[in-house]
Design a protein around this nucleic acid. Sequence first.
DNA 1: ACAAACGTACGAACCAGTGCGTTTATGTCA
DNA 2: TGACATAAACGCACTGGTTCGTACGTTTGT
Lengths: 232, 232
Amino acid sequence: MARVSLKTVAKEAGAGSVRPAAKAKEKSRTNDPDRTRANIIEVATHEFSEKGLSGARIDEIAERTRTSKRMIYYYFESKEGLYRAVLEESYRRIRTIEATLDLENKPPLEALAQHVRFTFDYQLANTDFIRLVMVENIHHGEHIAQLSQTQQANMAAIDTLRGIVQRGIDSGVFRKDLNPIDLHMSISALCFFNVANRYTFSTIFKVDMASPAETAARRESVADMVLRFVAP
Amino acid sequence: MARVSLKTVAKEAGAGSVRPAAKAKEKSRTNDPDRTRANIIEVATHEFSEKGLSGARIDEIAERTRTSKRMIYYYFESKEGLYRAVLEESYRRIRTIEATLDLENKPPLEALAQHVRFTFDYQLANTDFIRLVMVENIHHGEHIAQLSQTQQANMAAIDTLRGIVQRGIDSGVFRKDLNPIDLHMSISALCFFNVANRYTFSTIFKVDMASPAETAARRESVADMVLRFVAP
DNA sequence: ACAAACGTACGAACCAGTGCGTTTATGTCA
DNA sequence: TGACATAAACGCACTGGTTCGTACGTTTGT
């Protein structure tokens, strides 16, 4: 059925990943499993986050890749396998970035405020991740349930917050009955909504939640709400 | 192009829809367009909310209906048409129920607290609706964008909150710079997350967010957070 | 030489949508 | 009132395009 060749000719495109200098004739193929794998995941991440697990098409993902559909199955075995790899990688990325923040040495109130603003901005800048979480919840979390590695690592992500809360309580600037997990949930909820429900909310209330002005105001409102929440 | 009439034959619709007494032989079919339509929407609501727009299957919806697949296309024209009808009906239902609450005559603080707890409980009890909103946002809100009727009616849904805010400010128990839409967003965010992200959050943090104890604690935490937020 | 990495082309199941014929309800006029 | 025409409501069985997945052969690296 005249299915088009889909060459993906040449191209140095890459965000990085230098190739061997050879390049002489474009006829030659270069094996680079790491790059191929990473490239597939990158494309798939965007595709799954845009269309969901059921809405995404393996053929379309393959098309946007520098390799072929066969390679997707070679590396990931199935559509769900690929989805799981995408989920894992997205969760891995968020926690490595979160760890770079140094909030341990700042006064609790300031540290918390910064933590909230950072979370807000990170989620705003990583809508792909947010949407993947939405998709995963539509699927009842059955895939992340299989990634125990990911679960553990992400549970540890609130250790920073836990530390801030402890210091805040100790120094008397936070109320004593504060529950770190509950606090984390509230922060997540406020930041998450801003990205996740942007479309329906903007449509109904005729505001452009993606605009810089709206975003800035919202960020401060969220920070304010959290700070008020922890006060004694 | 046998394009169906789409009658909407007036009628008192009601959840009940009494049938003609006839019923004589079970061999005979009884035409009851309203009931058929409502039945399809009911089944489709659950199916779309469980599997999403792309994940849901028309054949499966038809199977769970008391009628045939052909009727789905007879009444709704396409899968997306059915989805739109489902979305519209879900939004319609939430606002009629919301309107039944009488908060106009209670003191602002009490009214707000009740409003928050009601929102929390309603969303908890109507996961189908919440999940539909998630699905719609995955699709960039392109379907609700076509339902201007629904948009308008739902924008009006914050009039109650707006009234409470005004009375609270006037009587001095709320701070003056409170923005009703911003407040509404925060309340929605806190309640929404509880249902929408239940699976990933429960999995990562090893808590059962659906349990009564967890739910009750969370409801009070949310109410507390909102009340602190509005204080002068 | 041998395994890992890769591409092409194909198949089988799935699934939205429809052609067409049948039954039920309703209006109309003798 | 009842015969009849017409429209609405309905069901069966099918189709054509889509889509996940793979058989099989080729190239690259060690």
